[in-house]
Write a protein that binds this DNA or RNA. Sequence first.
DNA 1: GTATACTGCGCCCAACGAGTG
DNA 2: TCACTCGTTGGGCGCAGTATA
Lengths: 413, 413
Amino acid sequence: MSDHNRTGAVTLHDVAREAGVSYATASRALNGSDRNVRAENLARVQEAAGRLGYSPHVSAQAIARGSSNTVALIVGAVDDPYFASIADGVAEGAYQAGLTLTAAVTDRSPDMGLQIVRTMRGRRPRVILIAGSRVDDDGVYAALAEELAAYRRGGGRVALLSRNDLDFPTLTVDHHGGAFRLAQALAGLGYRRFAVLHGDDRIRMSYDRRQGFLDGLRQAGIVPDPRHVVATDLNRDGGHRAATALLSAGRDRPGSDPGRSPEAATPPGRNASHSPEATNPPGRNASHSPEATNPPGRNASHSPEATNPPGRNASLSGGGSGAVEAIFAVNDVMAIGVMTAVREAGLVPGRDIAVAGFDDIDAARDVTPMLTSVRVPLRDLGRRALELALADDFPGIVEVQVEVVLRESTPPR
Amino acid sequence: MSDHNRTGAVTLHDVAREAGVSYATASRALNGSDRNVRAENLARVQEAAGRLGYSPHVSAQAIARGSSNTVALIVGAVDDPYFASIADGVAEGAYQAGLTLTAAVTDRSPDMGLQIVRTMRGRRPRVILIAGSRVDDDGVYAALAEELAAYRRGGGRVALLSRNDLDFPTLTVDHHGGAFRLAQALAGLGYRRFAVLHGDDRIRMSYDRRQGFLDGLRQAGIVPDPRHVVATDLNRDGGHRAATALLSAGRDRPGSDPGRSPEAATPPGRNASHSPEATNPPGRNASHSPEATNPPGRNASHSPEATNPPGRNASLSGGGSGAVEAIFAVNDVMAIGVMTAVREAGLVPGRDIAVAGFDDIDAARDVTPMLTSVRVPLRDLGRRALELALADDFPGIVEVQVEVVLRESTPPR
DNA sequence: GTATACTGCGCCCAACGAGTG
DNA sequence: TCACTCGTTGGGCGCAGTATA
């Protein structure tokens, strides 16, 4: 029965007919606009709806009402604990607010989330939340901003996570401060020679964390060998690969330039995990100018003009006066990869080489030794971003504080 | 301009007016149904659309066309690598198929996904994918089945992941076989005394894995102490908690019944992670009959009639003849929690107590020692589930094979 | 061949009249 | 008469078809 319409789905008409009431009554009974419906009819309608398996067409409702109650979350990857935790927070908040969450992943989009935002916008959600779309080339960047502006003009609400360069309510993390204090803490523990693993400089998170760390070191009178400040992918394999290259370079070819090793010098490529803004589209890998926007004292991967004169031992494990004592990776996922690489090189993380990360994901406490990190309240981040978007006033940029967590991977030295 | 309508968003009307063409022409130009539009007009329309920031209203399109092109994925949790990997696979497949993915999490729903399915259905997606909704009490269970059947009657497509009890295309994992072979492999390595950590028995995955493992042991002539077969949460903390309780019970109170320890005996509660079907609604914790459907040789958490006579040393770490040599947890997340608990007890996982899990998530290779597990192709699972749903024929149940991966956490003994 | 009406998708909302008590 | 409920009708949401001009 009731397969008269195109899709074959049950409509409100069918329910009304089945219940023996009028269309309007059925509508009033089910969505209770003005609940002037007799109890008996109400029950009949509900019963009929249940028997027929009726499900209101939310698209039609959305059109008729002019608004939906979904929140669209756009993340870089699902696979990544960073995003997963944020998404979890958003899901919780959405549930409490009675909103339906729909998520999209920019990871595989050629247009870096721009297209995603476009299609998401077409769904007319009440809120669009963006966690880490990349600060990309100006063209795409401006297009994204315009897209969001148009969405807001249409009554939509926007909140951004972890970027502070657009004119929307933004929840940002104190990357610089956290890394700064971490560096100071590690210096306080007695470490002097550091390596830093970071990502593409156009990813603000990566840039800020690296810069904060270097600034913190400088404050302590420490300037790391530029060859030990390496750009790589912001995921587990990126950390693993860069650390492996550095370790093998230091051991197998003492005096060689680790920054020039083919592994470590590889610009960030595909499968960029974590990376709030590092989701390289397939086919465009490594095609960006890797040296763009580099500040002084930066990544020396490709820089022949390293401050260390050639011949000086800059190895990680050489044991000489220049040997690196600690590796900081700008996120935990990378740091965990680093730890595995260290072990594979026959060394013991923590004892032989200290390792530190950032984010304090759950896994940081499950690796051995437990990972020193900077705690970011990721779930709160998601929840608060949603609140921010829903709020009526424009709070501008809200900065979330973070906390250094010292663990066994960086024992006093 | 063009803020005449309720929402304030730009409509196709605005675009047509702006471009100086008729409404229908603009429609054809933008969605190119039959592209009988002059090149000049086409360009003008596109230009106008871009200038106005027009975004087609997908709800309206869905209504007009009678179909949308989204795939709805319903998972138990985002937080969990198991679901995250599956979601990643689905996202990939959806992207390739030109479908938009929208995901929902049942974790916090009081109705165990039933309500989620209901609302999802209202969105009229082309596909609904369910990864691990719990095999719950018959009422909800039947309601879920009916909901899905109604959805299918309306032309929708369904695929189920990892449950094989409903009449829909299903991708199931050979939980029993994998655990069976793992048990045999561990027995082959010389282990004899095992503990098994599992979840709620109504969760088929947990039940099958545990049963498979026990069957495999039996085949090798091994029957573990029932007190060492413990039910707990299917997440990291569940594994950690249960292992801690067992270890402390074994050490602090030799001869006592570890199954009676308040920690280990706690029925699965909230925050059930991983757990394709274990997402207990808040407020209903521990209210189900915990002993339901228990097969012989099962969990003895609450069983005074343990086969071991009281006084015999059944501790995990006591070192006596009854000391457990290996702990199997029905998933990796739990196993990782177990490893941490072992370490916290002053023991070395792998050397003092072997640990094995199931799923072979990425993190299994980043813990120390690397975790023995059973490899489940989770990403493939997601991708294939989508294909299954989209396929025209009804393939019934497809079973995915798994592979035992022995690593350092279970060295030969 | 190209551009314009018109109808319909499934629903919400408002207004009106008619039927009860 | 009043308060309440119900059915009918019309309009509209934004868009995609299919005829018309």
